[in-house]
Each structure stands twice: as structure tokens, then as C-alpha cells.
């Protein structure tokens, strides 16, 4: 039985690319395109893993992450954080909020795949 990945990303092209790569690897991929109701989307879809963009319209990825970690059901949910801002303080911020993994755009497809596999295995 294949696992579910929820991709929360507002750029449709990036969303499509990630979906393509993961689908080919046997994942079930769900997409969500804004930050406002992202936490609800996580709750309803109950994915095995979340790929979360930081710069989302409506709500910041950091906020969403904090809320997920605060909730018992999603406290241990693996979250791969994506950001287009490559500064080190963003990485620190992400880790302090409890991101399982942090990746800077642009990423290589192989990296994403490997990271998702790693996170799912834990």
C-alpha cells in the first residue's frame, strides 16, 4: 500500500514537478495551493508526509508548521520544508519550529526523492 504525500505549494509548476517525481516513485500525491486552510487540509487528508513551502499566500509555512507541531495528532508528522530564501537564518528558524527536513529551492529531483524516502522510513 502506497503512502500519501501532501504538497502545500502555491507555484503550480513546482507543485506539478514534485507530484510527477513522487508519483513515479509510487507515492500518492495530494496538492494544496494556499496557506490559509493548509492545516485543515493536513487533518482531512491525514498524509504520511507533508512537503510545505514557506512563502505561501495567506499564511506563512512557519505558522502552519508551528500549529502542526502543537497538535498531538500531527506533532510527529514528517514535514519537509521548502524555501526560496536561502539564508542560514531561515534554516535555523525552520529547525527551531520543528521541521523534519529543510530544502532550498531550486532543488534537484533526486534530493527531494531521497529526502521523502528517508522521512517516510523513520
Amino acid at each position: 500500500m502506497s503512502k500519501t504525500v501532501l504538497v502545500i505549494e502555491d507555484e503550480p509548476n513546482i507543485s506539478e514537478a514534485i507530484g510527477f517525481i513522487l508519483s513515479r516513485d509510487g507515492w500518492r500525491v495530494a496538492n494544496h495551493f494556499n496557506g490559509v486552510d493548509a492545516v485543515e487540509a493536513v487533518r482531512t487528508r491525514n498524509p504520511d508526509l507533508v512537503i510545505l513551502d514557506v512563502m505561501l499566500p495567506g499564511r506563512s509555512g512557519y505558522d502552519i508548521l508551528q500549529e502542526l507541531r502543537a497538535s498531538a495528532t500531527t506533532a510527529d508528522l514528517p514535514v519537509l520544508l521548502l524555501t526560496a530564501r536561502g539564508q542560514s537564518k531561515d534554516r535555523e528558524l525552520a529547525e527551531s519550529y520543528g521541521a523534519s527536513r529543510f530544502m532550498t529551492k531550486p532543488f534537484s529531483n533526486a534530493e527531494v526523492l531521497e529526502a521523502v524516502r528517508d522521512l517516510a522510513r523513520d
Binding site: 507555484e11 514537478a17 530564501r85 529551492k105
Partner: peptide, 20 residues
Amino acid sequence: SQISHELRTPMTSVRAFSEI
């Protein structure tokens, strides 16, 4: 930060799809 974001976003798509 904005510039970085604005540049990296299209580059991400370019890289991802060209790798695909």
C-alpha cells in the same frame, strides 16, 4: 530576500522539469 525568492521560484520549475 524578495529577490532571492523571485529568482529561485522560476528556477526551481526550470530545474525540476529539465531534470524530468
